[in-house]
């Protein structure tokens, strides 16, 4: 018996090394980035986040243009993707015949599995010309009085990148939102129908208000995706570190400046500033994911309380 005890103990101890090393790995990523960005952290301090000049030649680094580009593209992408994604999810969960819904969900998963570099390739050769010849002239003609849609029309730029991001995050929103909507108890919907509600009324008043926290969680996770997306954005945003109001103008994001400049960062302060950008990305991803988990957790906890009653 004691022989078993020793062998079990050894096995258990050895196996315990793995989860602990996963924890160490995540902590290691964080501390490695902090350590490597120390020179930049010390030199620029908090001003790194709001200075708008990025000039490697004179070692002057401010990340505001990238933060601006990331915020604008992610926001516009959510603006496009959330209504369409949630709408499609509702249709699949509530209206579509089961077989159709299953097939469409499979196709949506397919869309989610496309590597981002392929989206980028498609973006360069299909989306950008389309934006240049159709969408942007149209917007300029009818909404050109807004500063958002003014200026030269290159095709590449923040609007194209936003549309690309929207396409990338939409399957993600659909699959999470669909699960949330399908989790709404049947009784609630049936009571609404019994009161004479139409399907849309039952949906908008009951299902969406029941599931809104979960859907918000899905949206926040999608935001995390959009912020961390590298290749597709880098390939079509134009990579110009300036802050312009117009969506037609080229921009730059936190992720794409890393992709473009990291390999050519040839002196320590440059490298350190870029690693600080990676640190910003890491922290944002931590915040976004923890927030989304807490939201989803609050929904599932609520359901458990409901069941216990």
């Amino acid at each position: 018996m004691s022989r078993h005890d020793t062998s079990d103990l050894i096995f258990r101890r050895v196996l315990a090394v793995f989860p602990i090393s996963v924890l160490i790995l995540v902590a290691g990523i964080f501390f490695e980035l902090v350590y490597s960005s120390l020179p930049s952290l010390q030199k620029f301090g908090i001003g790194f986040l709001y200075h708008s000049v990025w000039n490697p030649v004179v070692e002057n680094f401010g990340a505001l243009p990238f933060i601006y580009g990331t915020c604008v593209t992610s926001f516009v992408a959510l603006l496009l993707a959330v209504p369409i994604g949630v709408g499609a999810a509702i249709y699949l969960a509530e209206y579509a015949p089961v077989k159709v819904a299953k097939m469409v969900s499979m196709l949506v998963d397919l869309l989610a599995a496309i590597p981002s570099v392929i989206y980028g390739l498609w973006g360069i050769f299909v989306l950008v010309p389309f934006m240049r010849t159709v969408i942007q002239p149209f917007l300029g003609k009818y909404l050109g009085f807004l500063p958002l849609f003014q200026g030269p029309n290159y095709g590449i730029g923040m609007l194209a990148a936003s549309v690309m991001l929207a396409i990338i995050i939409v399957p993600f929103i659909i699959s999470v939102a669909r699960e949330v909507i399908m989790a709404v108890p049947f009784v609630y919907k049936e009571s609404a129908y019994a009161l004479g509600a139409t399907r849309w009324e039952a949906l908008s008043n009951i299902v969406l208000s029941y599931g809104k926290v979960g859907i918000l969680g899905a949206v926040i996770l999608a935001l995390g995706r959009a912020i961390g997306e590298v290749m597709a954005v880098t390939m079509i945003i134009g990579n110009d570190p300036k802050i312009a109001l117009s969506l037609f103008s080229p921009g730059y994001t936190l992720a794409s400046v890393l992709a473009n400049e990291f390999a050519e960062a040839d002196f320590p302060m440059y490298l350190s500033a870029l690693i600080e950008i990676a640190l910003v990305l890491l922290l944002v991803s931590f915040i976004v994911n923890i927030l989304a988990r807490l939201l989803i957790w609050s929904v599932t906890k609520g359901q458990a309380a409901e069941g216990a009653k």
Partner: peptide
Amino acid sequence: VMNGIPSIVFGI
């Protein structure tokens, strides 16, 4: 949380 870390951060 690790699943949500942007891929480029792993590269760095």
